[in-house]
Design a protein around this nucleic acid. Structure first.
Lengths: 243, 243
DNA sequence: CGAACGTTTGAGATGACTCAAGCGTTGTGG
DNA sequence: CCACAACGCTTGAGTCATCTCAAACGTTCG
């Protein structure tokens, strides 16, 4: 069940059994990566897409001076670079953060799968647009929130996204990021990330220790981060998914 | 020729004459707006897309406290909310900045147009992915550049995008934004935007007066803004488009 | 045990913000 | 045709958030 998490619990879209089967068949290989490996470099021409099955990946742009800015973090079930299917080349790089397992789906196979299936193509398109929506929320975060708000907003997002694929209980989850990673995500220095995390801890809002995030006060978190999960297009009823 | 600028000079994609005609026929109405009008509000269910023909529009997210963060600026030829076609609802609002002319394209018509035309659908998809790519560049801008760099980067982007649709000569263009708009785009205050613009002027890099931007030193601009236009997916050979 | 890595803390520098006031231009009504 | 309101731009002074540089600490792993 490599792709069972893909588009799971997303509002406005839902894969049918036959579509899941088709995508499953399009998987050419399953691979593993060590932490902190570059999977695809900016500008490379790519002929396949990467579906993250386990672990965390990120997408980043580097500065001429060598500092990176992460532009996306991916959780299991994300089609990390589905946009390479229509685009062929990427404007950024992709790397693993933790150890990962991922499925490789050749563009060629995708082309066959969507042939004559506009509805499925629309769903794939939709999936890339959620990524764009997340980009916009990140822009809001960077533009309008201070350091405390940025970290809180990001952790709220991770909580919501992981919960929707069954990897958070809504308050506690494993997040294999370092403080330096958080800095690259939120556009700040790791020193300042450290101070902000301490504040969240001292205010009994949230703790982040050895890769485990515990949200003590979801209300305060949401408030500090001005977080509204609307942009994630998560089905509000996803808790009752078996109904 | 309402849509003649759409996807013009973009690398990796090019509309055929028949496709242009089809899209043209899908236009249900042409409308005008005054400056500073909300066109679509966040959360609204939409049944049509907006193709900007003339003027500037923006997309923004507002803060609970009422401050806006712009997440996109659109120039003529942009399909402002093509993503509403697969998504149906928007996670942000859309507003005009200047007076605008835009074409209204019902989702229904688009559905008919793409039916059985996967290649055209792929091109539309591509177009929404360029927006996502621009979002990522904005994230880089916000996360890694200081105030001076942010303004320079943004003006470089506008220059490149406007040039690709014939609205900049490569150094000089009309940009109907106020300093307060620039602040909302770059995540800073308008007071500070003002000081940064003065710096660019005093260093003979760029001037921005009464809606006219003049880039005196493209080299310095690119350098200050760490600008690499790769992410815009503009055809490098677009100057020779008639060849 | 030592190296490598991530975290923590401090002190000082600086970039960007806030508040506040003045200026210039444009458009409108008397 | 003038006066004034509205809006956007400009500038100054003081404050605060975040960064930089630097050092020390803890843990993990070979």
């Amino acid at each position: 069940m490599l792709i069972e998490r893909f588009l799971r619990n997303k509002r406005g879209v839902s894969l049918e059994g036959s579509e899941v089967a088709l995508l499953q068949q399009a998987v050419a290989a399953v691979r593993h990566s060590e932490p902190r490996q570059t999977i695809i470099s900016q500008g490379e021409e790519v002929s396949f897409c990467t579906l993250l099955v386990d672990g965390l990946m990120c997408r980043y742009i580097d500065d001429p001076s060598g500092v990176r800015q992460m532009v996306a973090v991916h959780v299991p079930g994300d089609f990390v670079d589905l946009h390479s299917f229509p685009m062929k080349e990427l404007d950024h790089s992709i790397a693993s953060i933790t150890q990962t397992t991922y499925a490789v789906v050749p563009h060629q196979s995708l082309r066959q799968v969507v042939e004559g299936r506009e509805e499925l193509m629309r769903k794939l398109w939709f999936s890339t647009l959620i990524d764009a929506s997340i980009h916009r929320a990140w822009l809001f975060r960077m533009g309008r929130l201070g350091a405390l708000g940025r970290i809180a907003h990001f952790l709220c997002e991770m909580n919501a996204r992981l919960e929707s694929v069954g990897l958070s209980d809504g308050r506690r989850f494993v997040l294999g990021l370092t403080q330096a990673d958080l800095a690259e995500i939120c556009g700040m220095t790791s020193v300042h990330v450290n101070r902000v995390l301490r504040q969240l801890r001292e205010r009994n809002v949230c703790t982040f220790r050895s890769s485990i995030v515990t949200i003590e006060s979801p209300e305060k978190m949401v408030d500090i981060g001005s977080f509204d999960p609307y942009y994630l297009y998560i089905n509000p009823g996803f808790g009752h998914k078996m109904a």
